[in-house]
Every structure is written in C-alpha cells, then in structure tokens.
Write a protein that binds this DNA or RNA. Sequence first.
DNA 1: TTAGAAAGTGGCTTTAGTCAACTATTATTT
DNA 2: AAATAATAGTTGACTAAAGCCACTTTCTAA
Lengths: 144, 144
Amino acid sequence: MTEKIIQDIKKFNRFYTRHMGLFNIYTDESPYSATEALILFEISNKKDCTAAYLSNYFLLDKSYISRILKHFERDGLIAKKLSELDRRIQHIELTDIGEEALKTLADKASNTVQSMIDKISEEEIEIVVESMKKIEEILYSKTQ
Amino acid sequence: MTEKIIQDIKKFNRFYTRHMGLFNIYTDESPYSATEALILFEISNKKDCTAAYLSNYFLLDKSYISRILKHFERDGLIAKKLSELDRRIQHIELTDIGEEALKTLADKASNTVQSMIDKISEEEIEIVVESMKKIEEILYSKTQ
DNA sequence: TTAGAAAGTGGCTTTAGTCAACTATTATTT
DNA sequence: AAATAATAGTTGACTAAAGCCACTTTCTAA
C-alpha cells in the first residue's frame, strides 16, 4: 500500500473538510448549530434513541449531550421517556415540533447542497454521487 | 435535478463528517488543533502566504488567525516578514522548526489514514481513491 | 450483600471562534 | 493635494462549543 495513496486520501480529506466549511456559511442563521442539527437528525432516524447512544455515536462528552437534549426538551423538540426495563435509561423521541424544526434545518441543508452543485452538469453530478456512494459503501462496511 | 441526488449528497456529507471525526480521535494528543494543523499545512504550501489570505481561505475571523499566527511565531514555527511593496502586509513562512512540527502532524495524519483503511483490500482502496479524485476534480473546478 | 459499572446531571473550566475598536498603511475620491 | 475609504493586522472582551469532574440513581457482576 503506497504512501501516495495515503497522501491522496489526506488531500481529499483537506479538500472536503474545507469544501463543507465553505458551504456551511449559507446556513448559519439557524438557532441550532451543525452538531445540534445532526443530533436532531439522528434522533429522528434512530429507533430507541438514548443519550448514551448519541454520545457514543458522535463521540461527544455525555454531559454535553445531556445539556443539548435538555435544551431540545425545553424548546419542545423532543420528549424523554424513562425506560421501564432499566430506569437509568431515557428513550428520546422527536415531537411534532421537533419534526418541524428538523424539516427546516433539512431544507436549509438541501439549499446548501443545491448551491454547491449549481454550476455542475447533470452528468458530472451523477459522477459525484456515484463516487460518494462507492466511498461510503467501502468505508462504511469497515467501521461498523 | 432530482431531490434524491440532494439527499444522497447530504447523506454522504453526514457520513464523511462523522467518519473524519471518528478518525480524529487518534490524533488528538497533539499540541495543535485540527484547524492549526491545516493552517500550518497551508502556510507550508502557499507561496507568499499572508494572514489575510489564510482568513479568506479558511473563512475564519482575521483576529483569530492573527492570534494563531502569534502563537506559531512565539513557538518558533513561523517567521513574519513585512512586505516591501505594501507595509500593511506580512509574508509568512515556516521555519525549520515549523517544518518539523508539520512533519510530526503529517505523520500522525498518515497513521490515521492508515488505520482508516486498514482492513480494506488494495482493490477497494483503489476505488475509494479514484472516487475521491473524481469528486474533488468536479467540485473543485466549480469553487475556484 | 457489596462493589463496580452505566446512565444521566450540574458546576466549572477550557478551547475555539466572533465582535468591535483600534493603528498603520495604501487606494480612491473629491 | 487633501480628505475619505478600504485593507491588513492587532488586541480586548466576549460568546459558543465542548470537555472534565464529581455526583446520584439504577443495574450488573462478583
């Protein structure tokens, strides 16, 4: 496995980190940070979501997650429900308000992607998307 | 251009953001943050680098860049030189110490990539790298 | 039954980054 | 030529994001 491959991957990492950063700029008049948006998204998609799961999934300190969830609860975006099987555990679900908030964030993210690919031909977009799928498919299978 | 393409790109963005986050964990006993490392890297590669350039390039507040560069100067990693053509401008260069520090960070990043692709076959790695190149090639040409 | 671990919380600290005002210099406008 | 505006960079103050530590409650393992 050559050093060149490692350099190529690092180059892409730098490029993509910056690329995503450039396009975050258009979405930051949101009341929620990128981290919070991702957490809301994950709650929305994860069956039986818990704070511990989110902390592990995002590699964030559990007390930070706890605080974020408290804000979400205060804002009415989520509801917590004590597990009957293990009363340490709270199950977290998005409320209707939370679904709404997430939809707003998702729409903004869609607009961001839209502007990211504005001047690219359908053909090239197809290549980008297929390439992304290949990367995710291969890398994902090795981290689960 | 379909909504599905936008969803696919967003999915990849979420995946790759987290993927890079997972692999940062192995490099964080560094005295420099990821941002600082990227700045050092850019100084190393950019001819006639200036603070204003770095602020624009990374979309970071100029006062934050100023402080980071001050730390780098204090640590002996960079040298600043007033431009003779425009005495507002300072040219920034890496010192030998800075090259050394960057090398250390680069080696750590290489180890991170190494562990990222540890269990992937040469064939699949080839696909990943080629896919990354395609993405960068297409997206890059539209943001410069 | 006791000790250890897990889940979550709150106080506090650290880190990352922003905002505003400033100085010095150059460019533009009058 | 002088006045005004803009740029490059700095500093102080501040906010936001995130981490650390100690705690309580609950469950698991010994």
